[in-house]
Write a protein that binds this DNA or RNA. Sequence first.
RNA 1: GCACCCUUAGCUCAGCCGGUAGAGCAACUGACUCUUAAUCAGUAGGUCGAAGGUUCGAUCCCUUCAGGGUGCACCA
Length: 474
Amino acid sequence: MNKFEQERIEKVNKLKECGLDPYGSKYENTKSLCNIVEEYTDEKEGTTVRVAGRIMTMRPHGKTAFLDIRDRTGKIQAYIKKDKVGEQKFDIFKLLDLGDIIGVDGELFKTRTGEVTVYATDFTVLSKAILPPPEKWHGLKDVELRYRQRYVDLFSNEKSMNTFLNRIKIIKWIREHLDNSGFLEVETPMMQPIPGGATAKPFITKHNTYDMDLYLRIAPELYLKRLLVGGMERVYEMNRNFRNEGVSTKHNPEFTMIEIYQAYSDYEGMMTLTESMIAGIAEKLYGCYKIPYGDLTLDLTPPWTRKKYCDLLKEYAGLDMADKNAVLEKAAELKISTDGKENDEIVNDIFEEVVEKELKMPTFVIDYPKSLCPLTKACDDNPDFAQRFELYMASMELANAYTELNEPLEQADRFRKQAGDGELGGKVDEDFLHSLKYGMPPAGGLGIGIDRLVMLLTNTVSIRDVILFPLLRQ
RNA sequence: GCACCCUUAGCUCAGCCGGUAGAGCAACUGACUCUUAAUCAGUAGGUCGAAGGUUCGAUCCCUUCAGGGUGCACCA
């Protein structure tokens, strides 16, 4: 315990000696601070208000003081004067510190310099802080502390609070958009006996009573498609996925994903949905379709560019992916390993190396090589390609969608081939295959990385800045 | 997992060629009844991330470790 704490604990004790509870109780504050300030007019001078919040700055002047009090919506200035609150109360005021949470009763007025202020008639200590807040001007800068002690980051860095408030809005608008389009929000298992729907490494856990290994889900896909079989027709789930892999500015081991399935639609339908939903949210957030991201200005005005995977390869790598020798040459040129890889896998490595970084403006990359898409229906006009798109923006993969493969025997074949690779621990979700045999309607399916979407829409470079409590070492 | 960089007061940061630590804010004492990064005077505050090594002497050079950042790898 340092001297700051000790000094403040002494003040806590003094408040108790004065018969006050330094940790308050229910306090009926009338309005948010932002509303009070915005709605103030000269006629409102003298109106009584009751406000509550954290003391952010203090400017004492002997027998008076100005305090800035902040709540979630904004801040307001309070003016405390010895003559107004009385001598006893003014002595109590002297025990207040930056960071304390207080309530203030008073009358509204405008100061000489035009700031809306509460002229305190009384105040209440609601929570006495025994640690000092960070520096008032610079806030909390240390990124490690900002992540580990997000609570301090939130109350001391307005920008951080705003990012998370925007995240909350974005998620709310996505739900609104889908709910208004007849989609049902569902919840499927986070703990799965066989992790499916993607090929990431899972976290393993164990159920004691059943003596059963379980995996934290890497994707909800196979369960959501069971619901299509069940007849729910339009479903979505927005929640956490868990992947036991590296951490980077674009990857957190637990991350939020939305998966959306629409019966009788296809990947074209999913493109339209993606476009209208994301552009709509950008418009609500910024008032226009052009949004800043780093050095870029992303133009989200629909419709967005759609380009075929193989055409992009030609455009940026000068490569015809059917020409296997050319593919090997290109791989060698880029120092991409080709050991034990199929042609399509090498092609995809080249794509990721060469093309992805060029995709800055919103671009739907469509029609992926079928071998890379075990859950996707083949293109009608070419059986080597699948009806899949990935959405790229600012060189970042943001969404992934298919026309879902609903042919049970074909799906079984593709799973068994993949299980042969050992990618899913050799396990095939037989019940999912069983469900398809009852008939799944043709459907479009879409997954959007919510954290990355929030990054793009809030102009944030690191995923850790849009996740309240990102994973850090102990 | 690999490479590079960072870690100094509660917070934000200085610290030269290796000579043993500085500022602002915050705190404490005092002055001040419309300030707003309030002002003025004074006081206190440090295991320089940790452990070892080199040296007469290490915040500074070397090694190891911990945590963090960035890039790479991993990641349909």
